[in-house]
């Protein structure tokens, strides 16, 4: 079976330092891939290259067997990326933030207010829909960003340090969501320094041993 995402001899550099060398990664449906490495080892650089945010790599990245440059629209409509900064506007309410994220990622006409409320309830922000995000705590703002996991249908989640600022219970919940998503046939690539408590086998990719 063709892997969902495939990298062929991918090398990444940043500021003249070679961070990733000849990475051949096969991301299968239902797989969870944890990228590990010390600070500055190129975890974020690799994720940004995989998403197509960065062009500073050599080698090829394929989506369902086709080069991502050719099937970019198809790839982007199946990809959900949550980076260090979550794209949440402090001046807007969680509902307004998610309405925008929903509209640029999916067909807005099908995304009702109800879907946004359900997503917010899922991340534990029930009752906070209409308060401005700057009044929420850092962890709650992070959760607004994570609510996109339930709003935007995707096949591949790329999560850069998703556990930052999330409390213990939230970490367990997020691990549960990742596991559930993978068991439903999705694939997850994430970076974290945290030991994942997931029953399913997690593939580890170690960077920084060059």
């Amino acid at each position: 079976m063709t892997p969902l995402l495939e990298t062929v001899d991918v090398c990444c550099e940043r500021d003249d330092r070679l961070l990733v060398e000849n990475l051949c990664l096969h991301v299968e449906q239902g797989g969870i891939y944890q990228i590990e490495g010390p600070n500055g080892s190129g975890k974020t650089t690799l994720l940004r290259a995989l998403c197509g945010l960065s062009s500073r790599y050599t080698g090829e990245i394929r989506w369902r067997g086709e080069p991502v440059k050719k099937v970019r629209m198809d790839y982007l409509s199946q990809l959900l990326y949550i980076g260090h900064s979550s794209g949440v506007k402090a001046a807007l309410t969680p509902r307004e933030n998610l309405a925008w994220h929903g509209a640029i990622k999916t067909d807005a006409t099908q995304k009702t207010d109800h879907a946004i409320e359900a997503a917010l309830e899922k991340v534990g922000l029930y009752g906070y829909e209409d308060v401005p995000c700057f009044t929420l705590s850092a962890g709650q703002q992070r959760r607004v960003g994570l609510a996109r996991l339930f709003l935007v249908p995707a096949q591949l989640w790329v999560l850069d340090e998703p556990f930052t600022a999330i409390d213990k219970q939230g970490v367990a919940e997020l691990e549960g969501w990742i596991e559930e998503f993978a068991s439903n046939g999705g694939a997850v690539i994430l970076t974290t320094h945290h030991q994942l408590a997931i029953a399913q086998s997690v593939q580890h990719i170690r960077l920084g041993n060059l």
């Binding site: 506007k89 001046a91 509209a103 067909d107 807005a108 249908p153 096949q155 998503f181």
Partner: peptide
């Protein structure tokens, strides 16, 4: 967490209007 097998299409006018609306709202705030 739905996994739609068909490609989710994005409505172009919807994305345009959502960005416009968001920016105007932000300026108002």
């Amino acid at each position: 967490m739905s996994l739609d097998s068909d490609i989710t299409s994005v409505s172009l006018s919807g994305a345009f209007l959502a960005t416009l609306r968001r920016d105007l709202l932000l300026a108002y705030r």
